[in-house]
Design a protein around this nucleic acid. Structure first.
Lengths: 206, 206
DNA sequence: GAGCAAACGGAGGGGGCCCCCGTTTCGCCG
DNA sequence: CGGCGAAACGGGGGCCCCCTCCGTTTGCTC
C-alpha cells in the first residue's frame, strides 16, 4: 500500500515493533488502549509513537489495515463469483470480523470526509458497493437499503456483540429475514412523536 | 424510586447540582465525560461526586433514570393498549431516544448481572418482554427473535446513528421488513469460515 | 447553642496524552 | 574506513483525569 523503502532502518524497525505491540494491546483493551503502554511494550519512547502515528486513529487504521485489505479483496472476489448471494456471505464475514476484533468498529463506522480517500470506512464502503449493486440486480436486496445502511447496520451489530461472532451472525440473519413476518405491512405509521422521543432532554427535565 | 428523606439538606442539594451538571456535560461529551468537569460545574469537590456516585456507571444510570422510567412506563402502557403493534411503536421510540441521548446506549446495552435488579438494561428488558410476548401472540414478531435480540439490535442501531433519530428509525424499519425480499430463503448456508473471519488475529499476523 | 455525626473539599499519587529539545544513530560520500 | 549532516530518538514536563485520604466545616438534634 504505502511505500516504506526510502526509510531509515531504525525507523522501519520501530514502526514494526509499535504495530506488533499495538495489535496486542488493542486486542486486549479496544480502541481506547493506552498509547503509553503500547510504546512501553514496543520498547520505544512515547514521542516515537506519536512521530509514527500522528493520532490514535492513524494507529488504529494501521493496526487493522491487513484485516480491512482482506475484507475488501474478499468483497470484489465475491462480487465476481457469486453476484446474487455474495453480499450475504460477505456481510456474515464482516460482522464476524467486527465482533472478533476489538476496536475495529470505530474505524469502520467512522464517517469518511471527502479528503480522506484511504480511510477504512470509505474503502470498505467502496468495496461493498458493487456487491450491493449485484444483489440489487439479482433481486436479493431490498431496494430501500443503501450500501451505507448495510454497513452501518453490520457495524452496529458487530460492535454490540463484542466478542461473540455467533450472536452477531444471528442478529444479522434476523435483520435479513425481517423481525416481523411480512404478511402485513404494519409499520406504515410514520414517525410519531412520543413522550420518550421528544429530543435529547429526556434524561432529566433541565 | 429511591428514598431520599433521611438525608441531610446539603447532601441532597449537592446531589441535585451534580445531576444537573452531569446531564449537561454528558449530553455534550457522552459517556466518557470528565467527572472533574461535572464536579467543577456543580460547584463541588470531586470527592463529593465520588461519594454520591461510586462509579461512572452509577452516575450515568442516575442521569438517565428519568428517561428510562418513561420508556418502561410507555412499554407497559403500549402492551395494554396496542398488543399487536405496540412493540413496533415502542421500538421506534426506543431507537429515537437512544439516538438522541448521548451516552445512554452503554448503560442500556450493558449485560445485567444477576445481583443487580435495578440496572437499566434489566429494567428495560423486563419492560419490553410483555410487549414482545404480545407481539408474538399477535403474530407480528418472528418466533426466532427474543426480547434480548430486539434490544441489542435497537441499542446497536441507536448507538450507531448517534444524533440522527431519523436515520435510526430508517435502519430499524429496514431490519423489521428484512434486508432482502423474502421470496426465497437464501441464507441457509450456515456459518462458513472465511479468510477474514478466522478470529481476532486478522489485524496483523503476529 | 453545644455537640456529634455526616458531609465536604483540597491536595496528592498514579496514570495518560502530547510536545519540546538535547542526544544518538544511520547512512552517505569522500 | 571514518567523518558529517540529517533523521530519528527518548526523557521529561505541562496539562488533564481519576480516585482517595484526612483535616475541616456543616447541619441536625436535644
Amino acid at each position: 500500500m504505502t511505500q516504506r523503502t526510502g526509510e531509515r532502518a531504525d525507523r522501519r524497525r520501530n514502526r514494526e515493533r509499535l504495530l506488533v505491540a499495538a495489535v496486542e494491546v488493542v486486542a486486549r483493551d479496544g480502541a481506547g488502549a493506552s498509547l503509553e503502554e503500547i510504546a512501553r511494550r514496543a520498547g520505544v519512547g512515547s514521542a516515537t509513537l506519536h512521530r509514527h502515528f500522528g493520532s490514535r486513529r492513524e494507529l488504529l487504521e494501521a493496526v487493522f489495515a491487513d484485516g480491512v485489505d482482506l475484507l475488501c479483496l474478499r468483497a470484489t472476489e465475491l462480487a465476481r463469483s457469486e453476484p446474487a448471494a455474495g453480499l450475504w456471505v460477505w456481510l456474515d464475514e464482516l460482522v464476524r470480523y467486527i465482533a472478533c476484533t476489538r476496536g475495529v468498529s470505530d474505524t469502520l463506522l467512522a464517517e469518511f470526509p471527502d479528503d480522506d480517500l484511504t480511510c477504512h470506512s470509505r474503502r470498505v464502503h467502496d468495496a461493498a458497493a458493487p456487491l450491493a449493486a449485484a444483489a440489487l440486480a439479482a433481486g436479493t436486496l431490498d431496494r430501500a437499503a443503501g450500501t451505507a445502511d448495510l454497513l452501518t447496520l453490520a457495524g452496529a451489530i458487530g460492535a454490540a456483540t463484542d466478542g461473540d461472532p455467533d450472536a452477531a451472525q444471528r442478529l444479522l440473519h434476523l435483520a435479513q429475514r425481517g423481525l416481523c413476518p411480512n404478511t402485513a405491512p404494519l409499520h406504515a405509521s410514520g414517525p410519531r412523536s412520543a413522550p420518550a422521543a421528544t429530543g435529547a432532554k429526556v434524561g432529566r427535565g433541565v
